[in-house]
Design a protein around this nucleic acid. Sequence first.
DNA 1: TCTGGGGTCCTAGGACCC
DNA 2: TCTGGGGTCCTAGGACCC
Length: 397
Amino acid sequence: MNDGSLGCPLLHVDMDAFYASVALREHPELVDVPVVVGGGHRGVVLSANYPARRLGIRSGMSGTEAARLCPQAVRLAPDFEAFESVSRSVMETFRQVTPLVEAYSLDEAFLDVSGSRRERGTPLQIAEWLRARIHDEQQITCSVGLAASVSVAKLASRRAKPDGVLVIPPERVIEYLHPLDVGELFGVGAKTRARLHRLGLETVGDVAKIPLPTLRQMVGQASGLHLHQLAWGTDRRTLVPRRSDDDPERSMGAEETFSRDTADPAVIRRELLRLATRVTRRMRRAGLSGRTVAIRVRYSDFTTLTRSHTAPDPTDVTSEVHAEAVRLFEALRTTRRIRLVGVRVEGLRPRAGTQRQLELGARERGWAEADRAVDAAAARFGGGAVRPATLFGGSRP
DNA sequence: TCTGGGGTCCTAGGACCC
DNA sequence: TCTGGGGTCCTAGGACCC
């Protein structure tokens, strides 16, 4: 059977208004009214259902603006445990079709079904089967783009939304791509789009016609080549089936916007401790440690800076990461009001067994043991059960 | 009382090494 | 008395993605 999808074995599956759709399963009476997930005090909209979108509400928009556009919209708090649980189930459904699944985010995945034809049919048949399964099992809809390359499949799913499928066969890629605005390309955001427009390049076709060396001069070596390939639909990006132990996360971080800006060093140190605790706990759970500690500081005027320090040895010890974060912060010698702080550990690698433990002095070994005890207690009694003493009693900033 | 939180990758300059 | 020239690491910033 040839339904036109045989040359398009790469699928991009994208859940429609994912967080809102999952949240609405618990509130069927709200499906036809505008609903927004997130967007509380100082927050942004994480997801909006289609009635809300029709009023101009978009994810990423500030809650204030969403409320202005639609004061009567119902606001629901995000339930990430529910989102993650639905996401895991959906990814499992994908893996029934092919092991080549890249879980790109909670609500998106790339699938390579080139090896599934004999058992499962054409790519288009597979796409429709998946859409039906997900709808039956999860009561949410998704859209699927099919193409010969990852980036074109990604564009196709966007065009298929909501609740649709779009096949872009290889011989139609150019005619499909070239009239699009450059900003539609995967990887071209607002800044690059504006820059390209200023250079007279408005459509994908405009970019395609520029000689590669000229393009590279305009936007840099790597982005130039990438952009050129995207514009011709020839990018060679392949699926990354799943991060494994050989390919761990490269960094882990946590950050938080204060409910009110603060210049109080004690409040900031305490927040750095909360964040360091969160980050290192996740690192230890994943068996990772890292040498570089970075902090991020956003002032009330939204200017943002980062400072980092790389130590000779990796660590996953809360007190060490916190101490470095405080050192970096104090080196700023700032008295300005601060909106957000963040802590991130970079250069993560699998923890080298007990090797470092043997080299540690008694004091450090003590901290590492204390962390493990805290982790164990947190695992039994919940994340908030055991905290450093300085986190008790202090009112949340 | 505009503007979250989690990430990845690239660039550019300086240090340092061979 | 030669404005070499790679390569890697570190730091800071920026763009982008969901």
